[in-house]
C-alpha cells in the first residue's frame, strides 16, 4: 500500500513530459557549441557561433532587433504593470460594484482572444486611424496584451494581503497616501515585480502580433529570427536561441525566488 496519492505509471509519464519539453531545447543548446559549419555533423566544441552573433555579418541586424525588443519590452512591461497595479487595487480593494465582472472580463480579454485575431484587429485599427506601423505601434500593441499577464500575479498577491494592515496604518495616524506608500505597496511589491517580469518576457517573446504591426524594415528579435529561419536554420540562430533561452531561465528563476521570498515574509 503506497497511499492514495500514488498512481503507478504517473512517474514515467512525468519524465516523458519533461523529456518532450526539454529535448529540443537541449539539442539546440548543444549544437550551438558545434565547431562545424554544417549544422548536421558534430565538429567539436567551439564558441565561434557566439562570436558570430556579436561580430558576424548579421550582427548589426540582430543587434538592432535586440535593442528594439529590449526597449519595447522595458516600456511595455512598465506601462502595463502600472496600469495593472491600478486595476488590481480597484478590483481587489473596491468591494462589490456594478461592472466589476465586466471589468474582469475586459482585463483578461487579451488572454481569451486568439493572438492572430488580435494581430489582425490591431493592424486594421492602426491602418484606419492612419498610424504608420513601426516602433510605436508595436509598443502600443505590447502594452495592451501585457496587461493581463501583469495583472494576474499582482491581483493574486493583493488578495492575500488583509485589509486590516491598511486599517492599522490609518489607525496609527497615517493618511491614505502614507498607508499606501508605507504599508500596501511594500507588501504587494513581490506581486508587482513578478507581474513586471512576466510582462517583460511576454513582450520579448511575442511574434505573431509584432509581425503584423511592425511595418517594413522594423524588426524585433523574434521577427528577425523568423525571417532568418525561413532561409534555413543556421548555427548563429542556435546561438541566439540559446542566449534567449538563458534570459528566460534567469527571469523565471528571479520570479520564482521573489515569489518564494514574498510568501515567507507576511
Amino acid at each position: 500500500m503506497k497511499g492514495v496519492r500514488h498512481y503507478p505509471g504517473f512517474l514515467p509519464l512525468t519524465i516523458l513530459c519533461l523529456v518532450v519539453l526539454y529535448t529540443p531545447l537541449i539539442v539546440v543548446a548543444v549544437y550551438s557549441f558545434n565547431a562545424s559549419t554544417s549544422i548536421t555533423s558534430w565538429g567539436g566544441f567551439s564558441l565561434r557561433w557566439y562570436g558570430e552573433v556579436f561580430t558576424g555579418r548579421e550582427a548589426a541586424r540582430f543587434g538592432q532587433a535586440a535593442w528594439n525588443s529590449i526597449t519595447i519590452a522595458l516600456m511595455a512591461a512598465t506601462t502595463a504593470t502600472v496600469i495593472a497595479t491600478a486595476a488590481a487595487l480597484a478590483m481587489v480593494r473596491g468591494g462589490p460594484f456594478r461592472g466589476r465582472q465586466a471589468s474582469f472580463a475586459l482585463i483578461n480579454l487579451p488572454l481569451m482572444v486568439p493572438e492572430i485575431v488580435i494581430a489582425v484587429a490591431t493592424l486594421i485599427f492602426f491602418s484606419t486611424i492612419g498610424l504608420r506601423t513601426g516602433y510605436l505601434t508595436i509598443l502600443l500593441a505590447h502594452i495592451t496584451f501585457c496587461i493581463p499577464f501583469a495583472y494576474l500575479p499582482i491581483a493574486a498577491r493583493l488578495e492575500g494581503i488583509e485589509g486590516t494592515y491598511e486599517q492599522a496604518a490609518r489607525d496609527l495616524y497615517a493618511t491614505r497616501a502614507q498607508a499606501f506608500r508605507l504599508i500596501l505597496l511594500p507588501l504587494m511589491m513581490p506581486g508587482v515585480i513578478s507581474g513586471w517580469l512576466l510582462a517583460f518576457i511576454i513582450s520579448l517573446d511575442d511574434f505573431i502580433i509584432t509581425n503584423f504591426v511592425k511595418g517594413a524594415g522594423m524588426e524585433t528579435l523574434p521577427t528577425a529570427i523568423f525571417g532568418s529561419v525561413k532561409q534555413g536554420i543556421k548555427p548563429n540562430i542556435m546561438a541566439i536561441s540559446t542566449l534567449m533561452l538563458l534570459v528566460s531561465v534567469l527571469f523565471v528563476t528571479a520570479a520564482y525566488l521573489i515569489n518564494r521570498k514574498g510568501r515567507q515574509s507576511p
Binding site: A90, G95, F97, L106, E166
Partner: peptide
C-alpha cells in the same frame, strides 16, 4: 469611502484595452 476612491483606478485599463483591443475587434 476607500472602496469608492480606488474604483476609478480601473479607468486606465478600460481605456487602453477598450481603445486598443475592443475597438479594433469591432473595426475588424
Amino acid at each position: 469611502t476607500y472602496r469608492a476612491l480606488v474604483r476609478p483606478l480601473l479607468i486606465p485599463s478600460w481605456l487602453v484595452i477598450g481603445i486598443l483591443m475592443v475597438l479594433p475587434v469591432a473595426l475588424m
